[in-house]
Nucleic acid binder design. Sequence first.
RNA 1: GCUGGUGUAGCUCAGCUGGUAGAGCAACGCACUCGUAAUGCGUAGGUCCACGGUUCAAAUCCGUGCACCAGCUCCA
Length: 641
Amino acid sequence: MKIALTLPDDEVLELDGPLPAAAAARAVSEGLARRAVAVRLDGRVIDLHSELRAGGRFEVLTDNDEDSLQVLRHSTAHLMAYAVQELFPEARFAFGPDVENGFYYDILVGRPFTPDDLARIEARMKELARAKLPFVKTIMSREEAKRFFAERGQGFKVEHIDDLPDAAEISIYELGDFVDLCEGPHVPDTGLLKAFKLMSVAGAYWKGDEKREQLQRIYGTSWFKAKDLEAHLTMLAEAEKRDHRRLGQQLGLFGIKEDAGAGLVFWYPKGTVLREQIENHWKAEHRRRDYQLIVTPHIFRGELWRTSGHFDFYADNMYTFDQDGQTYVVKPMNCPGHILVFQNELHSYRDLPLRLAELGTVYRYERSGTLHGLLRVRGFTQDDAHIFCTPAQLAGEVTKLIDFSQELQRDLGFNEFQAELSVRDPANGDKYIGSDGEWEEAEAALKSAADEVGLAVKRMEGEAVFYGPKIDLKLRDAIGRLWQTTTIQFDFNLGRRFNVQYVDEDGQHRHPYIIHRALLGSLERFVGILTEHFAGEFPLWLAPVQVAVLPVSAPFRDYGGQVTERLRSAGLRAELDTRDEKVGYKIRQAELQKVPYMLIVGSREMEQGTVSLRSKKQGDEGAVGLEDFIARALDEVSRKH
RNA sequence: GCUGGUGUAGCUCAGCUGGUAGAGCAACGCACUCGUAAUGCGUAGGUCCACGGUUCAAAUCCGUGCACCAGCUCCA
């Protein structure tokens, strides 16, 4: 039989089939075949050993292809499982997929893996890899496969087979003495597995279910080339250096105090300055866009949370207390408060869209294991707003929001964003509040708004919360990581529950649409991200200390004092280092504190009325006039970068 | 919440198999009066996370709780 393969350049290659994919690759090009890792047929990646029985779009994948990395990583997971099986014959294997940057395998063994075990496993993997063992695929019937794994005590595999759809082809892969249930694909042999490293071990549940067995998950990373592995490890080291928890302490920005409680953030003087800059900018930008800023209480009576429905859903996560026979709730959200403000007067359609904004501090009980520095806390300040609008205003408001979000975050140093549109789970319809029509309308508004600002949106089926669809924005930081910040959510729930109304043109009372949104997410989380993004070297307008004035020795303190005072009167945040230390020491301290500018003053400067400028970016820049420096610094502040 | 690890001076950490604690930085004092990433000497500083247990003796071993770290699960 003839098999027609359409190559990426649209050329069609006719071959006698069936034939192994590797042979087809050789027919395309010998050189390419030597570098082949797998092939892609009609979009599906398959391994080189597999027989081609039909034609289609055909592509040979080399180590340059992103899909090849996935194949490599999944194959490394098998190699690891093989090594584990040899060292721990009683091991029972669960899932072992590839993930971003690597792979893991969930394994059940009688005792915890130690770092020492990981070293042994890795060493054994290296030995096995050098043997260039082939990955051999075999198709089995369902019953045969179940019997096979049952005989070997691999209960998870048997259970997995039962979960596979009836139509699924059941295949196993042999790698030396290790046999695994797997649909593939894999690299041809272990010779390609060279640049890998086992990273860590952590607990994980069988099928992600807390009620099922807890397994040990070994994480590893795997690359085609040693230098890629190295680059990855360097990136991880870089991320560690940027860790906001470490920098928060080193730079005197923020921290968490065990005495006060987990997940509760203390903002130290310098961190408070940083936060204040962000808050001031945030407020100014909101006023400019016709938002009205409000302040609402931190605790509300329990009744309000019954009305809002939060008690039903989140009682376990709310901090409550009783006083005078009343239950109070420390607010976990600002919404009910904003609704009360809206309802303070009767609104006309002419008032809409009405935008209420608040830097509202909320508290939520989060499970202890989920807490993480400033990124996941129990008390945080949302940069919150609620927009009350008519159905006709919906799409326009969302467009404005997406624009606003990106503009605000660009001001703060981020330039790349991704968006996700979370919609209903069609299979679980009655979980949601609001009519089909409302959901469709809201979804369309979100989609068209994103389109209008040219933002690509990934549709997340079933990811919406019960009260409405939402669009989330993620930013990409300086070392390529994505962080979710902005969320724009429709709320079909609160308007009804609180019976929020406005008077329309025709005199009828109608429910406005409510959009709930946070652009930065929370100040705590955002400052954590910001700190890692800039590695603590904040742009001048945000830097807690902008200028350090360093007298060369004691006689020049007075002159340094005058310089400092002038800087402060010009609106710059300057500090004078009066310590009895050599100038080299003071410079080092200012460098470690990541102060953008240092002004060194001694006899020369005092005589000429200048300062000697040293910038964090360029080092020694020589003598400059104080007023010239001030002009330059103020300009930099106003440009925000 | 779960699995594993960790908790020692303000900070970063050392302290082997049990014999009541140590370094660097920071702080403070003295000397030096200093020119672009650490001047020298000295002083002070600890409920070894908390509570209970084992032991003649616990920072060290055991239990419980709390906190932190890596993940899992969760995140209005």
